[in-house]
């Protein structure tokens, strides 16, 4: 199967005067429709890697291909379109826009592209809120929800454009394990239903061990990259 994301020779160096190399010659590809997790100690470079995969950050050297298309020569606007249409993000620190309700947040990526929501997309947003089990609070402002409660609408928002890829940077241990499991089940369901490629940074063993593939980053290098054995 084709690759959803393909990284080759990725190096990332922060700073100019004092240079810190955070990623070293990373070659990494994720197949379409696969369910992957990235693990590694805090500070190992996972988020940096994910931001590069999501075209939010540019590597110091190396190339990023999204759906077989080179991104290094794209303009900011082109990249914005790529992110809007093909990538759904779940961020480590940021969930919903506080000025908007949960449902409006879910619709936001669609509005960015089309300005006006159609009846269909409203319906779809409702369905997604249902899917993530948050229909009841869909008209609540984001400020009325805790960080944990915002995660599921954030997932619905990541899904609204039916992106080919979902990139999730899960916060280290601020969810109880039941919630984690429910979220995991939803993610798996989406993966099966919409053939979405998932790449999830996680500190949670329960999520990681259920992926098809686990990549461990250590000190900016891939230390181990294993796929789930077929029984």
């Amino acid at each position: 199967m084709a690759n959803a994301i393909e990284l080759s020779g990725i190096n990332k160096i922060y700073g100019t005067a004092i240079q810190t190399q955070v990623l070293f010659d990373i070659d990494l590809a994720f197949e379409e429709q696969s369910f992957n997790s990235i693990i590694g100690q805090s500070g190992s470079g996972k988020s940096t890697l994910m931001n590069i995969m999501g075209t939010l950050d540019r590597p110091t050297s190396g190339t990023v291909m999204i759906g077989g298309i080179q991104t290094s020569n794209m303009t900011k606007n082109d990249l914005a379109v790529v992110r809007n249409e093909t990538i759904g993000f779940i961020f480590q620190f940021h969930y919903l826009l506080p000025e908007f309700t949960a449902l409006e947040n879910v619709l936001m990526p669609y509005l960015i592209k089309h300005n006006k929501p159609t009846a269909e997309v409203r319906e779809r947003a409702d369905e997604l809120m249902e899917l993530v089990g948050r229909s009841k609070v869909k008209n609540n402002k984001a400020t009325e929800m805790s960080g944990g409660q915002q995660q599921r609408p954030a997932l619905a928002r990541a899904l609204i454009m039916t992106p080919r890829i979902i990139l999730a940077d899960a916060p280290p241990g601020n969810l109880d394990s039941d919630t984690t499991e429910i979220i995991y089940d939803i993610l798996r369901q989406v993966n099966g239903q919409f053939k979405t490629t998932f790449i999830i940074i996680t500190h949670d063993r329960k999520i990681a061990e259920k992926a098809d593939r686990i990549v461990e980053i250590r000190d900016g290098r891939i230390s181990l990259d294993v796929t789930r054995p077929m029984i």
Binding site: I39, R205, A208, E209, I214, E216, S223, L224, V226, T227, R228, P229
Partner: peptide, 10 residues
């Protein structure tokens, strides 16, 4: 058996 343990084994 669980492939997640490979990281620990390493």
């Amino acid at each position: 058996v669980n492939f997640y343990n490979l990281f620990k084994i390493k």
